[in-house]
Design a binder for these strands. Structure first.
Lengths: 89, 89
DNA sequence: AAAATATATTGAAATTTTTAAATGTATAAA
DNA sequence: TTTATACATTTAAAAATTTCAATATATTTT
């Protein structure tokens, strides 16, 4: 993993709303209802959408549509590599 | 460790220049000669100073002056807590 | 196929971050 | 104690990020 990706992942983790979204995902078995997330975070729907996109683009989470809603899962490989690289910076 | 500090540390790690500074510190046993760092990163001296400050403020590194220059050391407690919190987000 | 529901994208404003010139402060050397 | 050297701070401009209204797209229901 290159330094550039370490930077990108750290950036994805550097916003409290995105951290809360990650927590919400985990608690909800990866299921995310956008409207519920809006209430929870007190953000407009496009903002939620934008934050989720950043998480996906960083590679930290995978996205797949189920019916009308989305499900997400941690990309454990990316996650573990990130930790490892930080430890041995 | 609160979510706010996770955010702050991630933010400190979310700039490639700061990551390079961290690497440079490690390679140099924590010793930093600012002018050398300027050359390495192709940044002006105040920028280096600013980036180092962000790292110190995040709690990731400790700063202590030796003679005219500065030495730094990783704050392992903060570092480890950060990792742990991320793992169990 | 039309209406309803859920998320994505675009565009623009507000905020934050990054950068460096100018200047200040502290230490070391002459 | 003057001069040189090294890092810090202030200030201001440039760049990037965050936010949301408006709009678009996709899916489900009727």
């Amino acid at each position: 993993m290159e330094l550039k990706q370490i930077e990108k992942i750290s950036k994805a983790l550097s916003d409290i709303n995105r951290l809360k979204i990650l927590q919400y995902m985990q608690k909800n078995q990866g299921k995310v209802e956008c409207t519920h997330a809006c209430d929870l975070l007190d953000l407009a729907q496009p903002s939620i959408s934008h934050h989720i996109k950043k998480l996906v683009e960083s590679g930290l989470i995978n996205q797949h549509k189920i019916g009308r809603n989305y499900h997400y899962s941690l990309n454990h490989e990316v996650w573990d590599n990130y930790m490892l690289r930080l430890k041995n910076l």
